[in-house]
């Protein structure tokens, strides 16, 4: 089905307006001759960014691994003579009473956020394919939550969810529901940060799924309508199956992004109260920067576990994307 998606804009550069495939095709044209002078030129152009990649990605990553394998204190952090301790930091992290809750919260936060973001995003995307008056404008407005700085969204939600003066509790009160301690009760804090995160993530799902819906040929719907399929059947028999490749990409990318969500949780609850909304991302920050006595080693260890998880799902994402590209 991906062939059909390519038809519209394979014409000129001008038509494409900067939108682009995530996987560049150059490798596929490899069999042709590569002149040596062009190789020099190519790597000349690539040299700055390669150096950059080594200095500012590889080296910080390496430093992070190094941090996690040594017993750093503030003094040895500055002097750089911390003793090598192998996997001791990881052992500390695994034995920490925060480990199990943080793992659970990370999984719950990620899965629940993804499910709601995707479901709401898809429903809105389908709704917006109907091209009614103002639909393009309203769809553009839906991008707002995604464009706002996270600190803005998070502090706005903090105040809206405030126990005493927040508008959410005021609304609940108006319909006769008791006030909820959204941010200060351990049983609600995770829900609160998930609500805010879903709000932030819906626009991304909407835009990507909407552009996926555009590639489903209208003739299919017309044929189904002629055969007497109702809207519900058209959605489940045509839209949903044909959207599967785009859905897979959206969800996997969302997964990688949601795993590393830090700002929202930290600003709204700092992972608390009593670690009730701590995820690996906030725990890592808490260990490294959140206390008076920083525990860089364990903090880096937690962070590295997060990197491994993100990379595993990231590689799955790339595999799925490659497969779709090849098909």
């Amino acid at each position: 089905m991906n062939r059909t998606t390519q038809l519209p804009d394979r014409r000129t550069v001008r038509d494409r307006k900067g939108a682009a495939p995530a996987t560049p095709p150059p490798a596929r044209t490899a069999p042709r001759r590569r002149p040596t002078s062009q190789q020099w030129a190519a790597w000349g152009f690539l040299a700055p960014v390669t150096l950059y990649l080594v200095l500012f990605y590889a080296y910080p990553l390496y430093r992070n691994v190094d941090l996690s394998l040594r017993n750093y204190t503030v003094r040895s952090f500055v002097q750089g003579d911390a003793p090598f301790t192998g996997l001791e930091n990881y052992q500390t992290v695994f034995d920490d009473p925060t480990f199990a809750p943080a793992l659970l919260h990370t999984v719950v936060f990620t899965v629940v956020s993804l499910v709601f973001q995707y479901a709401i995003g898809l429903a809105l995307a389908v709704f917006f394919t109907q091209h009614f008056r103002l639909s393009a404008t309203l769809r553009a407005l839906f991008l707002v939550p995604w464009l706002l700085p996270l600190i803005v969204s998070a502090s706005t939600w903090s105040w809206m969810l405030n126990s005493d003066s927040g508008v959410v509790n005021a609304a609940l009160h108006a319909v006769g529901i008791d006030a909820v301690n959204w941010l200060t009760s351990p049983s609600w804090s995770l829900t609160s940060v998930i609500i805010a995160n879903v709000w932030i993530g819906v626009p991304f799902n909407l835009v990507v799924l909407y552009s996926g819906l555009q590639s489903i040929p209208a003739s299919l719907y017309e044929a189904a309508a002629l055969d007497g399929a109702n809207a519900w059947q058209r959605f489940w028999r045509i839209t949903f199956p044909l959207l599967r490749p785009v859905s897979a990409i959206t969800l996997l990318l969302g997964l990688v992004y949601t795993l590393k969500v830090f700002d929202i949780i930290w600003i709204m609850t700092k992972g608390g109260p009593a670690d009730s909304s701590t995820t690996f991302a906030t725990w890592s920050y808490q260990l490294g920067f959140g206390n008076l006595v920083p525990a860089f080693g364990p903090g880096a260890a937690v962070g590295n576990l997060l990197v491994v998880a993100a990379l595993v799902f990231g590689l799955v994402y790339l595999r799925v994307q490659r497969k779709q590209y090849a098909s």
């Binding site: 150059p26 490798a27 490899a30 790597w43 690539l46 990649l53 910080p60 990553l61 992070n64 991302a281």
Partner: peptide, 29 residues
Amino acid sequence: RPRGGGVLSFLFLVAQMIPGIIMAMGFYA
């Protein structure tokens, strides 16, 4: 069409997935 260009593009895709907190800690050090 640089030799090794595919690997480099791949590295950039992977680089996007590294959580910010990791980068921050590395940069801090």
